[in-house]
Design a binder for these strands. Structure first.
Lengths: 106, 106
DNA sequence: TGGCTCTTTGGCCATATCGCCAACTAGGCA
DNA sequence: TGCCTAGTTGGCGATATGGCCAAAGAGCCA
């Protein structure tokens, strides 16, 4: 792995890392249904608004969501719909793992 | 987000988290071409063998790779080929972000 | 301007991650 | 058995992450 290749994988990892948190996954799923303001997401996630705001900035910095201020509210939207296909795959891993554990238990 | 839903997103996040590291992404990419033993991956990654072994156990615990001992070597293989589609999407984010930055620079 | 709501940022602490070294285990072979 | 290579595990220090509270911005309206 040379320097160029390493830089490439670091970029990718940064994006995936941004998705690697339950609250952020939930937010992406929710934004897939349409734009939401921070206060709406805060209620749904059930955490402090500052925490949710930080999660949103992580997603924004990774290029996954976009933000738009309208009067006093900031609305976030999903920039990358193809991520949704990925979740199907992740779900497949979840199910496969669950099956293995069931099998292991007899 | 109720307890059931939260557990669901935690499972997904655990899998995504396992992918959220440059070396582990590289390993997954490499395993997509065929199985590799730890020593081969160690050479390619260019880190300590203990470090690579730990990365592999992270991927294994997430259900992403499988391991098989053959004599003194342990071969790892990819269990979830659909992840490769995901990388295409991640790459799209990388490129979109790069374009934005170029545009921002004029 | 002051006051209000919505949102972001800074600070702090607890916890998790990463990478190396060192020690240990597994299997092959003389 | 002893010795070798391949791999895993434990431990340590450095660094990053996640959550809350408190404080600061941003925009509206009186």
């Amino acid at each position: 792995m040379d320097a160029k290749q390493r830089a490439r994988y670091q970029l990718r990892a940064r994006i995936i890392k941004a998705l690697a948190h339950p609250s952020r996954l939930f937010i992406v799923d929710e934004l897939a249904r349409g734009e939401r303001c921070v206060c709406e997401l805060t209620k749904m996630v059930g955490a402090d608004i500052s925490t949710v705001s930080k999660h949103l900035s992580v997603l924004k910095n990774a290029g996954i969501v976009a933000d738009e201020r309208r009067s006093t509210q900031v609305f976030y939207s999903l920039k990358v719909p193809c991520l949704l296909n990925f979740f199907g795959c992740v779900e497949a891993v979840v199910e496969a793992t669950a099956k293995e554990q069931l099998a292991a238990c007899g």
